[in-house]
Design a protein around this nucleic acid. Sequence first.
DNA 1: ACCTTGGTGTTTACATCGCTTACATAGCGT
DNA 2: ACGCTATGTAAGCGATGTAAACACCAAGGT
Lengths: 195, 195
Amino acid sequence: MSTTTKSAYHHGDLRAALLTSAMEMLEGGETFSLRAVARRAGVSATAPYRHFEDREALESALAAEGLQDLKADLAAAGSVPATPADLGELGVIYVRFALRRPALFKLMFGQECDPENDQRVIAAAELHDMLAFAMNHVFPGHDGEALAAAGWALAHGLAFLHLDGKLKATSQEEVDARVRAAFAAILSIQTSPAS
Amino acid sequence: MSTTTKSAYHHGDLRAALLTSAMEMLEGGETFSLRAVARRAGVSATAPYRHFEDREALESALAAEGLQDLKADLAAAGSVPATPADLGELGVIYVRFALRRPALFKLMFGQECDPENDQRVIAAAELHDMLAFAMNHVFPGHDGEALAAAGWALAHGLAFLHLDGKLKATSQEEVDARVRAAFAAILSIQTSPAS
DNA sequence: ACCTTGGTGTTTACATCGCTTACATAGCGT
DNA sequence: ACGCTATGTAAGCGATGTAAACACCAAGGT
């Protein structure tokens, strides 16, 4: 943006431009490549290296953005969940995100996030805390850590299984219904007084 | 196999050799590449194309093998699970597989399995049926389909979250314990008679 | 015996990719 | 005006996936 008759050599805000270009390609289903991103930003192939040490660094930045978007989606669901059905709705949001932005989602979770410098780990931790809080709010008095892991894993597993076509569904509504059903089914089990 | 003093030009059973080479590299943590596989099999870079139309085709074959191995692991757990704790043990086996052979596991699930020709879809379906049977055997009278999806998703999610470092653990025992705890926590919830 | 056929592997070549090194350019502070 | 520093560019290396044309070998019919 800024002035259009810019220097033509210096871009102005290449870093941001690269991020948005990359994100657009990711959303558009195009295969992700540093060179392609540079091309799309109208810049030489090696320019990105001024701003991202690594291809992985760019990916990590994208992943961080994605994590925050997902967190925002979940937060926009409303207030604190109170019932198992509310948890199901959180699951629906989670899976919808994964299916709406599949490449991004895989980027967010398909690799170890390099632990050192990033705001990515922060975003991931916040996501975890958010889900943990929700689970423990609906089911107080249980093993909080385990419940949080289980809730997250349930949503995450449903997302990935749908993403990879292991659970087939033809429409978004069908997916939503399955997610709700899965949450409802597993949260409504009445265990006999065994353990 | 067959005669060892083979022609030296014709390999004898390149297809199988490629598969085992590729599997070894995958297990060994080396990055997977068609050329590297060919090299390891002592064959030119493009020879694999006689046997696999595509890089993806080779991957798909590996994935199919992996699915059957996983299925075998689960089947080796013993007889039909009868209690929630038994389901937890299945989960442990599932997650262990993922952590023991991470690259393979990602291959198995990290991509849509191309649906046309493969025995891969068959293996995936068998896996699904297996888990569905287990879940429904322990919790009869519920929504079978939903329960199956939930159980699979729970194990799958735990596996991926551990794989990608989103749930951190330092030892195998710690992971096992977390998986058991997650299954136990979510399967032992006593819902109030709401819905 | 010969020649064809078809499966297998090789060679060569190309486009692309991530990344490194060395150089060019613009604007800032002095 | 001058140089410093941040920012891009140019050129190139090694590796990858893929395609085409070619070489090799075993059978099988004639």
